[in-house]
């Protein structure tokens, strides 16, 4: 049975990550802050705005100890504006928070009474926004190539959704195109791929080891053959060994806030 590859997040994992984002709350009571394992819970003063992680806000909300200040971007007018942007720019994604989907979902579920706009309107606008963005992302798949993909403005949840598909496809395209360009050393990865049943993304360390192995291999083999061939394939292996590192490295960094695009650049 096929399972999702290890680089894929499940939706609940992303939801968990989103809960670490901070949000403004309006406490109803005053109580002293305390030290938690992760973040510090700041001193809360009644009716003084305070930034806390989303998960704390939701717990306090559940106990009726605070009101959540709904972020600016979660208003109907803001979302409508973004929607219009999406319509007007067919090739770009509009700027939205990195975790807009899970945060919007959580807030809508747990503190719908704090919303200023009608929640059903917010919901439907969010739905529209998501659909148009998804449509765009899937349209982009028709232009897939083996070296480069830019997904500016897509949030983690949206990237994650198409990630297995994109990574596997681009890997396949890379194998195909390198079979002629790389002049030789692709076979290494090919064989590994056969063993692993194209495991697609190897761990960084594995990739490292692996490239080293195959380089050694190729050198050993080449000493037996003529000089020119040896030079060729060493150059070939150089080209290839740099490639997996960069591309996989980039995808790994995705959960970094500033680096919100997946990039596959040819080095």
């Amino acid at each position: 049975m096929t399972e999702l590859p290890p680089y894929h997040f499940t939706t609940s994992e992303i939801n968990f990550l989103a809960e670490q984002e901070s949000i403004t709350i309006l406490p109803r009571y005053t109580f002293n802050g305390t030290r938690l394992i992760g973040p510090r819970l700041p001193n809360l003063k009644a009716l003084h705005r305070q930034q806390v992680p989303v998960w704390i806000a939701l717990i306090l909300k559940k106990q009726d100890r605070c009101n959540v200040v709904i972020p600016d971007w979660l208003s109907v007018s803001f979302l409508k504006q973004r929607y219009d942007e999406e319509v007007n720019q067919p090739n770009n994604f509009s700027e939205l928070p990195w975790h807009w989907l899970p945060i919007a979902k959580m807030l809508l579920e747990k503190c719908s009474d704090d919303f200023i706009d009608a929640t059903h309107e917010v919901r439907s606008t969010l739905q529209d926004l998501r659909e148009i963005r998804q449509l765009k992302a899937r349209k982009g798949i028709k232009e897939l190539n083996e070296v480069y993909l830019q997904l500016d403005g897509l949030s983690l949840m949206e990237i994650n959704e198409i990630r297995p598909f994109i990574i596997e496809s681009m890997n396949q395209l890379r194998i195909l195109s390198q079979s002629v360009k790389g002049n030789g050393q692709f076979t290494g990865i090919e064989e590994a791929a056969e063993k692993e049943d194209v495991s697609g993304l190897l761990d960084e360390s594995e990739v490292g080891d692996y490239t080293r192995d195959s380089t050694r291999d190729s050198i050993a083999r080449d000493t037996a053959t003529t000089d020119s061939v040896a030079r060729d394939s060493i150059r070939g292996s150089g080209v290839r060994s740099r490639k997996p590192d960069t591309s996989y490295g980039d995808t790994r960094d995705e959960n970094d806030d500033e680096d919100s695009d997946v990039e596959y650049k040819k080095s």
Partner: peptide
């Protein structure tokens, strides 16, 4: 295809197959 084109350095074939793959993949 990858093995074949490696042996024969068949760029045309790879181009065609890559195109086919993208179309089928989408």
């Amino acid at each position: 295809v990858a093995k074949w084109s490696y042996m024969f350095n068949d760029t045309e074939l790879v181009e065609l197959i890559s195109k086919m793959f993208v179309a089928r993949a989408s």
